[in-house]
Design a protein around this nucleic acid. Structure first.
Length: 228
DNA sequence: CGCCTTTGACCTGCGC
DNA sequence: GCGCAGGTCAAAGGCG
């Protein structure tokens, strides 16, 4: 195989399906053979040309990376109120909203994707956490054509649950970032209509760099370019 | 031994 | 109020 073309057909903003068509085409030449399981959002594989169109705005892979990996504290805890402040990711760096697609909010749809729910059960179980977090974590969802479920995005994830979702024959897996102070989660499921498509939903923002920069030497220099 | 996955149980919110 | 569906917990087991 001499080349890959990873199609990312859509970025889904949970209920709100963002119009997006993107292609990540890249060539594999020997050692530079990219891992098909990777995808730029939170990783460092932006060396492969990626161009994404979101809401009519072209997004380069770097911009996408910046948007998704930013740990700028002032962007933390974005609330649904910020949804109105949506800005396309093609904005200059200083203006880039790390979660340019805004955040999933109950106002968008009726489905229950509220981030506070994640603490609801835990809080109930622990019975010591009395105040539920009202701030909803931003979410980012995208669809990828891949043979494997878990996309290598550069971070370490620990699976904490799996659930069979109605109307789908493939279970949904729940992962949590293994970093101590990182509460980022992701859901991974396969599209019912097309099992080759993997839907990955990220929730929250990483407050640290990917862990792969330690064990993926040939990518190190590039990694450093994507996270600062 | 530590970390991870698996999996059943439990809890909550929503729709009816 | 009830049932369903989704999300999370945590014990148990596996693996390096």
């Amino acid at each position: 195989m001499s080349s890959y073309q990873l199609m990312v057909n859509q970025v889904l903003l949970e209920d709100q399906e963002v119009v997006l068509s993107s292609q990540m085409g890249f060539h594999a030449h020997g050692s530079s053979l990219p891992n098909l399981t990777t995808f730029p959002p939170f990783g460092y594989h932006h060396q492969y040309p990626l161009r994404t169109s979101i809401m009519g705005t072209d997004v380069t892979s770097d911009q996408l990376s910046e948007s998704l990996s930013s740990s700028d504290p002032k962007h933390k805890d974005v609330t649904s109120d910020n949804l109105d402040d949506f800005e396309a990711p093609s904005m200059p760096r200083s203006n880039i909203n790390p979660w340019p697609w805004g955040e999933i909010d109950g106002s968008i749809g009726k489905k229950r994707y509220e981030g506070d729910k994640q603490l609801g059960v835990g809080a109930m179980k622990m019975k010591k956490v009395k105040t539920r977090r009202k701030i909803r974590e931003p979410r980012f969802c995208f669809k990828t054509l891949s043979d494997v479920d878990v996309l290598d995005d550069g971070y370490k994830w620990r699976k904490y649950g799996q659930k069979v979702v109605k109307n789908t024959q493939h279970p949904r897996s729940y992962y949590r970032c293994t970093q101590d102070n990182c509460r980022v989660k992701k859901r991974v499921e396969r599209l019912a209509e097309d099992p080759r498509m993997v839907i990955t939903t990220y929730e929250g923002r990483h407050a640290h760099s990917p862990s792969h920069d330690l064990d993926n030497s040939h990518n190190t220099s590039q990694i450093n370019n994507f996270f600062w």
